[in-house]
């Protein structure tokens, strides 16, 4: 009886005071996310130069988005970059994590070293790597700015270099959580190392795969600063000109600062479409990989 009374009074107090604790977070969430998001959608239906003088124009901006060849090109280019980087980052990150959870001397040092690139800002990374690439490519009288193929792989290398360490940490956490008795049982049952890896370890690490793949997919789609610093979209050619290494986020940015009177509204419409794409693809990928997780 006394126990239930105590529980009741706690519930009442919680109900009474919860907004005191939730309030600041909710307000920050509304100011930082909900309101800009709603305003973003509203602006995608407007023509404006500055936000406070927006004029409603309906769905005109959305029509312009799909007739812009750069947007369509950038979409496919971004999708390709995101998928290729997703595969490479996750394969390498898992491999490194797997190796570093074996009994290797200096494993902690390696973990730190692999994680460190993640601490460097994207713009800095982009410029440093552009110098490295150009230093190497100058021997072949070319530059990362003049070669679409190098531009693509350059970006993939930079993304991998930056993100593998981060994903590695998540995989290490997952690998450490695989119950030792399962591995031992597999060993006793006569499973080879490869069988243990693919039949026991990986299924148990699927939650980490879910997270890492979601992160690398969305990171790939949203990539901006490395793209800006490394190639800035170059090479650019053709008529109408297409920036061959320009990803979606950079396309939106460049469109926003264009000269046309509706440039900003069009860029805003692109941003809304971009959000739907990224959210849709991210959630689809989550649903797919979650099905493959096993319950321990």
């Amino acid at each position: 009886m006394a126990k239930s009374l105590k529980a009741n009074s706690i519930r009442t107090a919680t109900r009474k005071w919860c907004w005191l604790f939730l309030g600041p977070v909710v307000i920050a969430f509304i100011i930082g996310f909900v309101w800009p998001f709603i305003q973003g959608i509203w602006l995608s239906l407007c023509q404006f130069r500055i936000v406070s003088n927006a004029e409603f124009v309906g769905f005109d901006n959305y029509g312009k988005v799909f007739s812009d060849p750069q947007f369509v090109y950038s979409f496919w280019y971004t999708a390709l970059t995101a998928v290729v980087s997703l595969v490479i980052i996750n394969v390498l990150a898992f491999t490194v994590a797997y190796l570093l959870t074996q009994k290797i001397k200096g494993a902690n040092l390696y973990r730190t070293v692999f994680f460190m690139p993640n601490l460097i800002g994207g713009i800095v990374l982009g410029y440093i790597w552009s110098m490295i690439f150009d230093g190497f490519l100058s021997a072949f009288q070319t530059s990362i700015l003049t070669d679409t193929v190098w531009g693509f792989w350059g970006l993939i290398i930079v993304m991998c270099w930056q993100q593998i360490g981060y994903m590695m940490i998540i995989y290490i956490a997952g690998l450490n959580a695989v119950p030792g008795d399962m591995i031992e049982a597999a060993k006793i049952d006569g499973a080879t190392k490869m069988q243990t890896l693919f039949k026991v370890t990986i299924p148990n690490v699927m939650p980490s795969f879910t997270i890492c793949m979601f992160l690398s997919l969305t990171n790939g789609f949203k990539l901006f600063d490395q793209n800006l610093a490394l190639t800035g979209g170059a090479p650019i050619s053709g008529s109408p000109s297409i920036a061959h290494t320009q990803m979606l986020a950079l396309t939106i940015y460049n469109t926003f600062y264009g000269q046309a009177s509706n440039a900003r509204g069009t860029a805003q419409a692109m941003a809304v479409i971009f959000f739907i794409l990224v959210a849709g693809m991210g959630l689809a990928q989550l649903a797919y990989t979650r099905k493959r997780e096993v319950q321990q």
Partner: peptide, 24 residues
Amino acid sequence: TKLSRRAFLGGAGLLSLSLAACGG
């Protein structure tokens, strides 16, 4: 992992929301 994933999903949702809003 279940709890952290759910929390993570929430965070991911926020991230995506902010992304579209960032265009402006």
